[in-house]
Design a protein around this nucleic acid. Structure first.
Lengths: 187, 187
DNA sequence: ATGTGCATGTAACTGGTTACATGATTCG
DNA sequence: CGAATCATGTAACCAGTTACATGCACAT
């Protein structure tokens, strides 16, 4: 209930650790990531920003420029950083989607080396469990229902296998050359 | 608005082309697929079934057995088959999720060879476009924002590449040995 | 003037979740 | 008798979407 869900909220917070941005800016970043994190419409983006402001996790200044329409620049506050830190260092729920993982990945990478490694490990465990479940499902025909020639199961297994390989590789790379970024160096 | 969205509804319909089932049965099938299609709670499953009944796309009979609690067995109607046929043979929207694709894959596989091939081709085009977008994003550093060492982009590209390879392979297999199932052979 | 891009916002709706409530049947 | 499994359902809530509305600035 309290906590780990709510993706967009924390992802915005994560982006703001890099630098202050407007809602429009955030939208552009999201768009550039294709369907990796999905791209929320303004109809959810702006209200999310308002809610963050309400909760004191971000602050806003109006940027009035001579030549362009003015815009609101949001910055993360100390309270926001604390909230984000808590979120990143709290375990992912076991049914997390790929999008949720990518969000956490990006945020953690902006944030702390340890957190990033933890995300990758958690994801690894979950993907492994998922693939095992698919293998079980493919093996047992006792379900009386045969949905589609195991095509879907095969698809799922192929993707899971690649993902596991990628995760292993990423973890290896991370241990070889530790990241330059370290936690909470902002503002 | 009218049409292509609404996944669960059509996926249920798709399962029912195989054989009549209860809500509980459907849940079990969904569960066995892990997070490949997500598994909706009863709180959305039962209402979905009620709505399908309301619309005349399924019919229901109560199965009163001596030893077990009675249950409601749903069967797809001719109207339901028409609806499903329309859905399968209508183009996927360009932002479709993996889950949406898997649902369509399974339904199409139960349903028509041509439809299945079409699904795979559409997915191929979409994944290719997605990967191209990620490559573009990784290439241009003009975004002033650098979120996390391209780690996420790299992840996305790896998965997309595997998926493309799988799709090509699946299409090849499908052309070599046409499927035994053909459209609308039920009831 | 009019259309396009930048920029922000709200209201109605939707597809889903959680939590709750009910009841039959079987097993220990 | 109580717990576990099978089986169905509802109500409150939530995160997101679509569609709508506003307005500035610049170029044609």
């Amino acid at each position: 209930m309290t906590g780990s869900s709510v993706s967009l909220r924390h992802f915005i917070l994560g982006l703001l650790t890099r630098q202050p941005m407007s809602g429009y800016d955030i939208k552009r970043v999201l768009e550039s990531l294709g369907w990796l994190v999905g791209n929320p419409s303004f109809g959810s983006l702006y209200p999310a920003l308002h809610a963050l402001l309400e909760d004191g996790l971000v602050s806003v200044t109006t940027d009035t420029r001579p030549d362009k329409p003015s815009r609101k620049i949001y910055s993360i506050t100390m309270a926001g950083r604390r909230e984000l830190d808590e979120w990143v260092n709290q375990p992912t729920e076991s049914n997390a989607s790929m999008k949720a993982f990518v969000m956490r990945l990006i945020v953690a990478d902006n944030f702390s080396h340890a957190g990033l490694v933890a995300q990758l490990h958690q994801r690894r465990a979950q993907v492994a469990a998922h693939r095992a479940a698919l293998e079980r499902a493919a093996g047992s025909r006792n379900h009386e229902v045969v949905w589609g020639r195991q095509l879907a199961l095969d698809y799922g297994k192929a993707l899971a296998t690649t993902e596991l390989a990628w995760l292993d590789n990423a973890l290896e790379r991370l241990f070889q050359q530790p990241l330059p970024t370290e936690a909470l160096q902002g503002d």
